[in-house]
């Protein structure tokens, strides 16, 4: 447990350091800081991956059964996708969004009780990690598309109002932000789809039915339809820019509710407590 806690803290710390680097780089207009932040983030996900490995070897099973573990895994997915995106588009500014988000998710994870839940034998299946991984990577991609959407709206507003603040120089062009938004959507949507499908198969092996209209399932479906509509609008109607940015922000709000709100407010068998309970 000691090495795990240490790795967890080191990861959180590296996300914090990266956040500071990105934010300072942005405030002081020093892009070098962002370049260092990138390496710190990379160190962070490697540390976190070893944290997962240690957890897996000590507790066994997939380490995403408690809120603590889920949040931590989500932070990891987020940083991983951000780094991939950064590799493609060179988006240091977005680091100032992704790194602090990852840090706060880690803090949230640290604050929630760190319990190693022994999975109900009924739920033990190779589909479980597959379902979780797809769903979380999808969530992370949508979180980044949300970030790109917000940045697009800010930049768009400045260009329209012709009133430019300091951040104008730092933000990428509208074209780049729109592309990022689209890339995240086109990556996130298939991942989410696979997440839902693998979840359905898992449910069928555990309970014999694919779909039970559990609140989480219902809300996930609503969110899925929203993203499907956005993707459709983009591909066929030619939605882009501001409209697509606003839409991805709204859809992310639904996703957030599906991810956290349902668990905290509505209950159902997707709650973390329910994982361990005998049904």
């Amino acid at each position: 447990m000691g090495s795990m806690t240490l790795l967890f803290s080191a990861t959180t710390l590296s996300y914090l350091v990266a956040s500071i680097l990105y934010l300072v780089g942005m405030a002081a207009k020093r892009p070098q800081a962002g370049r260092i932040g990138r390496w710190v983030l990379l160190a962070g996900i490697l540390l976190q991956a070893s944290c997962f490995a240690v957890r897996h070897s000590t507790a066994g099973g997939t380490p995403v059964t408690s809120l603590h573990e889920s949040l931590s895994f989500f932070a990891w997915c987020l940083v991983l996708l951000y780094l991939l995106l950064d590799l493609r588009f060179r988006l240091s500014v977005m680091g100032a969004f992704a790194a602090p988000l990852a840090f706060f998710v880690m803090v949230g994870s640290a604050l929630s009780p760190d319990i190693v839940v022994q999975l109900n034998p009924v739920l033990k299946s190779w589909l479980f990690p597959v379902h979780i991984t797809f769903a979380f990577l999808g969530h992370a991609a949508f979180a980044l598309s949300f970030g790109a959407g917000v940045m697009y709206l800010v930049q768009n507003r400045m260009l329209k109002s012709k009133h430019f603040t300091g951040i104008y120089q730092l933000l990428p062009s509208l074209d780049t932000l729109d592309k990022v938004n689209y890339t995240c959507l086109s990556v996130g949507f298939p991942l989410m789809t696979l997440g839902i499908i693998s979840g359905a198969f898992w449910a069928s092996t555990a309970w014999g039915t694919y779909w039970r209209w559990d609140p989480k399932e219902t809300w996930a479906l609503i969110t899925w339809f929203l993203y499907a509509a956005l993707l459709h609008g983009r591909l066929t109607v030619g939605w882009r820019g501001r409209k697509a940015a606003i839409f991805s922000i709204i859809a992310f709000m639904f996703l957030l509710f599906t991810f956290l709100g349902v668990n905290l407010l509505l209950g159902g068998y997707h709650t973390f407590e329910a994982f361990a309970a005998i049904r």
Binding site: K29, Q155, L159, Y168, Q169, P172, S173, L174, D175, T176
Partner: peptide, 24 residues
């Protein structure tokens, strides 16, 4: 310093704005 970083002629300002919209 950023002393020479932004356009100070109307025509260059137009190019800079275009690059903030279209990138390339």
């Amino acid at each position: 310093t950023a002393i020479a970083s932004n356009a100070v002629s109307v025509s260059f300002a137009a190019v800079e704005l275009a690059r903030k919209i279209f990138d390339s």
